[in-house]
Design a protein around this nucleic acid. Sequence first.
RNA 1: GGACCUGUGGUGCAGCUCGGAGUGCACGCCGCCCUGUCAAGGCGGAGGUCGCGGGUUCAAAUCCCGUCAGGUCCGCCA
Length: 580
Amino acid sequence: MSKTNEATSMRDLLCASLDESHVGERLSVCGWVAKRREHGEHLAFLDIRDRSGLVQAVVAGSLDVRSEYVVRVTGTVSRRPEGTVNDRLATGRVELTDCDVVVLSLAEPPPFQLDDRTEIDEQIRLRYRFLDLRREPMQHNLRLRAVVNAALRRSMDAQGFCEVETPLLWAPTPEGAREFVVPSRLHPGEFYVLPQSPQIAKQLLMVGGFDRYYQIARCLRDEDLRADRQFEFTQLDLEASFVTQEDILGFVSNAVLDAAEAVTGVRPEAIGSMTWAQALDQYGTDKPDLRFGMVLQDLSSVFAHTEVKAFSATTVKALRVPGGASFTRSRLDQLTDQAKELGAKGLAWFRIVGDGLESPLARFLSEAETRAIATLDDASEGDLVLCVADEHQLACKVLGALRVTLGSPPVSEGPHHYVWVTEFPMFEGVDEDGNLQAAHHPFTMPHLDDLELIESDPLRVRSQAYDLVLNGWELGSGSVRIHRADIQSRIFSALGISDEVAESRFGFLLGAFKYGAPPHAGFAFGIDRLSAIFAGVENIREVIAYPKTQSGADLMTGAPKGITDRQIRDLRIRVVAKGS
RNA sequence: GGACCUGUGGUGCAGCUCGGAGUGCACGCCGCCCUGUCAAGGCGGAGGUCGCGGGUUCAAAUCCCGUCAGGUCCGCCA
């Protein structure tokens, strides 16, 4: 008897493990009936499926089993007769014969077929997720994710990090993402919140002397959902003391590359980096997809003294679209609409034709301007050049979005291009009260060369914050934290956070820092997103066992739901009717 | 809060522009036949509030308005 570590009291091995080495042995497998092919009352074939795959069982005589019945099949492993080998099946050279079939569980016909022949509407998949999980793609994706998790834990352990769990019931800190709120039964009128990240908890671990912490942490944010965003998501969260930014980039690179190697078998090259300003300038985004070119070009100097009103702006950016000259007018209108939605005043387009440019604007351009566009980025006949003239950041972002629309390959395609984006700005824009907003979070350490600018020119202050980007997806972000009270108070003051407000919101953190805070820095990246890209799927729901819909519903359980009057009473809360 | 796409037997689609009987295809399901199939095959059968509500019309799956659900995106996500 061949024993494997998949053997249990009920089975000897997994279906797909059966091969010619077992020929002659009498073995048991357990699984679901994937398919039944009957040939009268003397012969029937059963495809038995478990998580590993299929194996064919040959049954002499009729038997009363249907699709998805759970069975234990004991049979003799036999070579298939001449001419009946199935090359499309991993176990296609063998079959189980002289089978005893024990029905362990009956099954109604499933609401959708569990083979891979048709794509099932996601609404139905989610309603019957337990059946969807039985199918190969979900089996593959969740197992791939488990490989990622295991590799990350191994990597962090090997790098000397200590796994520490932090609370899910935490104190409200009304900054950043909207928090999920949990009413307290024992303290009526008071609330916990679910952490949008273990940010403060892990910084306190640094004060607590755990100089290398990590956790595979669930984070919860009550913000609108997207293809790459669920209410709850999982991060590899880490923080370390007595380190610089370079140390953190090294730790995270190791972890991500270890995970990539575990999944693909090949260790990617070291992860390169660019500054935030470069990313914006060349790709029009802080999460550049480096799988394809179409780098943004800058024509500001060419148009510095232009006669053309549409191009009188601080920045003129251009994007060459190879072969784009064949776009129809309605396609160009679509792109223009997209540009306007993103805030551009308009979108100028130029078809590159034999003897120059074809465009409504062509006749207004000077000779130098025409030449600059016609020769842009090695442009050749048949290309299209799109231009946006505006304030620098807007012009870049609009063309960056068009670059993605026009050039981005599917998630499942192309190599994995990791890149670090560093030197994010410290502040971005202002809130309703006219106060500066922290680009990352208020505990982020400014770039030491820019400390002087905090008061004089805050928008130019660079921070020691960094993102990890993979194929245009933001995997995660981190920063060096402020551990000095004087700098922290200058930042709070720049953000318009008074001492009193700071004390009430983060008092316990600031208080802790008075007792000896080591210099520290950290990072967190999304395991859902990383796994989705490894799995080649466009949507993180495909790597989550029980995801929610875009409206935040769980179609299987029906959550969110009402609770009983008793529960409401115990919590001392009141439900107010919608619309009142 | 907003834009766009989708909703038709259990499943996946077609039908919708240009209104005319719930019409069609494939899978599944049920019954019968079939001793080497593996997308098994043959014969027969059941199965529908065309998401829901209203309107236009002699007549609505089809046109209009509203609404619900799912999706993609903008806002939002320190």
